[in-house]
Simulated scan of single mutants.
Amino acid sequence: MSVLPLVFTSGWASGINAYAVVLLLGLFGATGLTDEVPEALQRTDVLIVAGVLFLCEAVADKIPYVDNLWDSVHTVIRPVAGAVVAALLAGESGSLPELAAGAIGGTTALMSHLVKAGTRMAVNTSPEPFSNIALSTGEDLAVAGIITFAIFHPVAAAVIAAVLLALGVWLLVFLASRIRRFLRRRAQRREERRLAAAEGGPPADRSVGGGR
């Protein structure tokens, strides 16, 4: 059977959490749940490193603004990981050229990474940290669920990943317009306060609670 659905799904998931993908695929291969996982992902050292980095991401990804920094660092790492995992999967099955698989996995990982990073930037306009925690936890569960599902039902999992990617792109466009409107309103209020101060009016931040 073609490995293309698993390549696409792993690429999407790598853009969200590449370390979870490597860890889960390696564990599934090492435990004998599937024979489509290459031995390179089943090595003990690879599993240990992936597990440690997954724990680091699980923490950093839930802290406002730290998650933005983490995402910026992983703009290269996640697509590269998606491409490498896809190429290894293709090399194991022999049903898809490794170069083509790498291109599919890397491109899909880049797209889902951009959706994730952009969504986090929008969420961080909110002052409370709970939305970051909820969103990060949901992403971790989604990656774990869809990779597990892909092992047993690769085509169905690929369809779900494609739908989630499309929804993510739409959400990112929707949030981007809201962020731009928010920034324009904030810039307008700042300009109004600056003009009021230049004309001799009281500063806006001293007018609240500053009366007699």
Rank of each mutant, 00 (worst) to 15 (best):
S126M: 15
V173E: 07
A156L: 14
L183G: 11
V169N: 05
A204Y: 14
N17L: 06
I146H: 04
E92S: 03
V52Q: 08
A83W: 02
E191K: 11
R178L: 14
L114C: 11
A86V: 07
A117G: 08
I151T: 11
R181D: 12
G118R: 00
D140Q: 04
E98C: 03
F130R: 10
G26E: 00
I179N: 12
P203R: 13
D205I: 05
G94Y: 01
S126D: 15
S10V: 06
K62H: 04
L114F: 14
A198H: 08
L167K: 11
I63D: 08
I179L: 15
D45Y: 09
T125V: 11
P154D: 05
A100T: 13
A81Q: 02
A198M: 07
A166W: 11
A142E: 11
E139H: 06
S2H: 06
P129G: 04
A103P: 01
F130I: 14
A166M: 12
W12A: 15
R180P: 05
V143W: 08
R43V: 07
F8K: 04
R193T: 08
P64D: 10
K62S: 09
I151F: 10
T34W: 03
G32C: 02
A187I: 05
A83H: 03
A87Q: 09
L164V: 13
P64N: 01
P127W: 13
V80L: 11
H74L: 07
G118Y: 08
A81M: 06
L172P: 00
K116N: 13
R193V: 06
L135N: 10
P202C: 06
A100M: 15
P202I: 12
A176N: 09
L27H: 02
A156Q: 06
I77H: 07
L47V: 06
A87M: 15
T75H: 09
T119S: 15
